[in-house]
Design a protein around this nucleic acid. Structure first.
Lengths: 336, 336
DNA sequence: CTGAAAGCGCTTACAG
DNA sequence: CTGAAAGCGCTTACAG
């Protein structure tokens, strides 16, 4: 790359000190009472030479990089891709850029990403924390690193977070199914101790209990790394035999898609053979044999709030923000 | 954030100069002939204090940030989300992190992103250039900024690029349709002068001409910012009247999805009323009433190659790499 | 074998 | 109104 123009180049060209140029470039010419003619000449030369401040130098000096570290499960997952997009837009509005990484729901990848981003001096983090990373998060928190969790959080580590009210979302979905006459309602969730998953499960269970269906509760758990094979086993458990379910609630977008492939393969009629409610909107849900009912997350709001809270933290606020957003239950043919 | 540990802290603790600590931390203790005992003590104290180098300071000094700037159309678009994921993984393998931005196929957003990333001193760029940005790209190229274009490039600006052989892909799709007996084959593309779009159109036209169907060529163009309304008009033009098409080729993933919504609404039977070939794989294609045939791009390879070429450029290579990758035509029910 | 020193490009308290 | 100087944390050519 060709040599960049520095404050020094402008200073030499105009014949003043670097300090004066810095003042003018930072709009401090009033407070510093820089002579009007000098201001004029500095501005002119800066424009001519096309001066752009070296942010690295600024960062080293000021300690602020105007950079946000975003760690999600997988940027190619539509939920995370969409929220990344919102976060990016909001970050730019606040003068920040985004460095991102995918942790693949893996403890070690997450640790490595956090370290990498810390070494790059990001001003703060937005993280969808992987299972078992509560100590990593706690360490960040103890170092007073500005931090906002999204999608999940840890009960035992008080942090800022912006999440869906997952309990309500699940409860609402199950209540809707019950209202439409279904009773043998199953759920397929990830095997995970993470709070968003536990809350979705709790919402299901409580809705069932509250409707005297406690004995009909049937949950199958699927491992993240073996989603398709585990899904197949789970579906068979729920659908085989005389005790088979008549409705099924999927706990995430990826689980829904994986399940739909199987349902298509098994040639099940929806909702006659099986009613379904999925998670997160998706073109695939629209094109399925019967359009899918699903829980819609307010992704835009989640991203906007996450950036807002983070920037407040970076700017020095120490109020902890715990934000729960509301879902929308999109009711369509699959749960009629 | 709490104070970080610096080389100085270690130096004071051990009672040696900062230079020595730097040598040891950078594994130069052999060349610099640092005393074995000193090396030992420095390592020990560094570990105790949990020293992590300040990358900002390193960057300012060395001029290298070990950062890649990635500019795509929209990170929430599955094609770009998937390729971003691959690029991220590859970048990490090479010791780089990724700063990304979505340009929304907009000239000005693109310019603003490029400037932001340059000010952040990224070591190089991977860009899916928006229409009309050839001057931006040319400017980067002239400043010798390491750069690799993906998905598209500009004929008039010689740069590295990694793209699909779009002509072949289109040609193959159309030939397949013709082979299956379709003759009145239409195409819906973006209104764009970008080369990937022009090549896809050229492939369509040439396949038609080569099969004596030049007179049946019918292309409708849709604006990126008005995709759904323009799609509706385009479909009506192609499907209304006695001259209506019997097969339709969509030029991108987003166009395919938009078209499918309409096809579903119009209740067209696929492939009886209309045969279809789409672009880029997608769960939605699998769940459509008839599984969709489509052109699959080698996204993994595209990302891997882009990073490889970029890192070579950053490391000083000045060979220009122009890489065209091959598609796979996935044949299914929609084009039978 | 080790250290003093310059310098990357910037900001800012201080002096005049 | 203006400038000399320190310092952010690092690397590295140079001297001894």
């Amino acid at each position: 790359m060709s040599k960049r123009v520095s404050l020094k180049d402008i200073a030499e060209n105009v014949g003043v000190s670097i300090a004066l140029v810095s003042y003018v470039m930072n709009g401090q010419e009033k407070q510093k009472r820089v002579g009007a003619d000098v201001v004029e000449r500095i501005r002119e030369v800066a424009r001519e030479l096309n001066y752009k401040p070296n942010q690295i130098a600024q960062s080293l000096r000021t300690g602020s990089t105007k950079t946000i570290g975003l760690i999600v499960g997988d940027i190619s997952n539509p939920f995370f891709g969409n929220i990344a997009r919102v976060i990016e837009d909001e970050a730019i509005k606040h003068g920040y850029t985004v460095i991102f990484g995918s942790a693949d729901e893996d403890l070690h990848k997450s640790a490595s990403l956090v370290e990498t981003l810390i070494n790059r001096q990001v001003d703060g983090f937005i993280i969808a924390p992987a299972e078992g990373t509560s100590l990593q998060i706690k360490a960040l928190q103890e170092k007073k690193t500005p931090l906002v969790l999204i999608d999940r959080y840890f009960d035992e580590v008080p942090t800022n977070y912006v999440v869906l009210n997952n309990f309500d979302a699940s409860y609402d979905a199950i209540t809707h199914l019950i209202g439409n006459g279904y009773r043998r309602i199953g759920m397929i969730a990830y095997q995970s101790t993470l709070i968003h998953m536990q809350e979705r499960i709790r919402g299901y269970k409580e809705a069932m209990s509250d409707n005297n269906l406690k004995n009909a509760i049937r949950i199958e758990e699927v491992r993240y790394d073996y989603i398709n094979s585990d899904m197949e086993k789970a579906m068979h458990k729920l659908m085989d035999g005389k005790n088979k379910i008549d409705a099924l609630f999927f706990a995430t977008n990826a689980l829904t898609i994986s399940g739909l492939y199987l349902i298509k393969k098994l040639n099940l009629k929806i909702p006659e053979d099986l009613a379904i409610i999925g998670f997160d909107g998706n073109a695939a849900f629209d094109f399925f044999s019967t359009p899918l009912s699903y829980i819609e997350q307010p992704i835009e709001e989640m991203g906007v709030e996450a950036v807002r809270v983070l920037v407040e933290q970076i700017d020095g606020s120490d109020e902890i923000a715990n934000i729960q957003l509301r879902h929308t239950l999109i009711k369509r043919g699959s749960s009629l």
